[in-house]
Write a protein that binds this DNA or RNA. Structure first.
Lengths: 139, 139
DNA sequence: CTAAGTGCAAAACTTTTGCAGGCGA
DNA sequence: TCGCCTGCAAAAGTTTTGCACTTAG
C-alpha cells in the first residue's frame, strides 16, 4: 500500500527505527474501518497476526507518533484516549452519545475564525466535535 | 453570593439534597480563578476548609452535576478530566500547551455551521478548543 | 557495534463501586 | 422516619516506568 510507505518514511525522517511493531500500528490505522482507535483497540487488532506484541509497546508508540504529528489524540470524554491517523485532510465529527458512532463532518471552524481573535497566540492545533443523537438512535 | 443560590436552587429543583459537600463544590467553582478544575483540584481546594470531605464524594457529585447540566466535562487531552461550571454563556478556549493556561475566546463555531451539515442528527452539545502557545510562553 | 526499541512485571494514577452508617427534607 | 448521601476501603481500568534483552541501522 502506497499510503503505508508514506507514513513509514515519516518515521524514518524523524530518526525513528522502522520496527515490525511500528509497521503493524500504522497498518491497523490504515486498514481499520473505524478511524478512532484506543491503545487497546490497536493491540487487539494486531494480536491476531502478531500475538507477542505487548500493549506497552502500543502505548509507547502511540505516544511517540503523536508527538511527531503522525497521529492525533482525540478526546470524546470517554475514559480511554482515542487516536486518529493524520491523513492530508483533517476533519471533525458528529459523535453519537448513545451508540458511540462518529461520522465525519465537512466543516472546519478555523475557516470562520477571525485572525484578530487569536492575536498573540500561536495556533498549533484545534478540536471541534459535535455530540448528540444520531439518526439510528433517534427512532 | 447570589450566583451560589442560583446553582443550589438547580440542585433542589432536580430533587437532589443540598448537602454541605455539594455547596462546597459549587463554591469552589465560583470562587476559583481557574475555570477548569479536576476532581482532585476541587478536593484540594475544599480540603483547607473541610478536611473530612472525601475525594469519592467529589467524583460522585461532579458526575451527578454534569448529568444535570450544572457542570460541563472538558477534555483537553490530559489524563485528568476537567470540569467547568455552566454560566449562562458558554464559551470556548485558547489553551496553551506549554503552561496550561486557558483563555476564553469570543467565538462559537455553531453560529457558522450550516444546518444542512447536521441534518438527521440531534445536536446536544459541542466542543471547540484551540491549542497552541500563548504570548507569555512565546518569548 | 550501539543506541533505540521491546517485553515483562510492577507501579502509578484516576475513577468506580459495595457497604454500613449519617443526615437532609 | 425514609431514602438519599457520605466516608471508608477496596477494586477496576488505563497508562507509565524500570530493567534486562533484542534488534534495526
Amino acid at each position: 500500500m502506497k499510503e503505508t510507505i508514506f507514513f513509514i518514511k515519516q518515521l524514518q525522517e524523524k530518526g525513528l527505527k522502522i520496527t515490525p511493531q511500528r509497521q503493524e500500528i500504522i497498518r491497523v490505522f490504515l486498514e481499520s474501518k473505524n478511524n478512532h482507535l484506543s491503545a487497546e483497540d490497536v493491540h487487539n487488532q494486531i494480536a491476531e497476526k502478531f500475538p507477542s506484541m505487548s500493549l506497552d509497546t502500543v502505548y509507547r508508540n502511540l505516544s511517540v507518533m503523536q508527538q511527531l504529528g503522525i497521529l492525533t489524540e482525540l478526546n470524546f470524554g470517554e475514559r480511554k484516549n482515542l487516536f486518529e491517523i493524520n491523513s492530508s485532510q483533517h476533519h471533525h465529527h458528529l459523535v453519537c452519545t448513545k451508540c458511540g458512532v462518529s461520522e465525519e463532518i465537512d466543516f472546519c471552524p478555523l475557516e470562520f475564525l477571525d485572525a484578530d481573535k487569536v492575536k498573540n497566540f500561536k495556533v498549533k492545533k484545534h478540536s471541534f466535535e459535535i455530540f448528540g443523537i444520531c439518526a439510528n438512535c433517534m427512532e
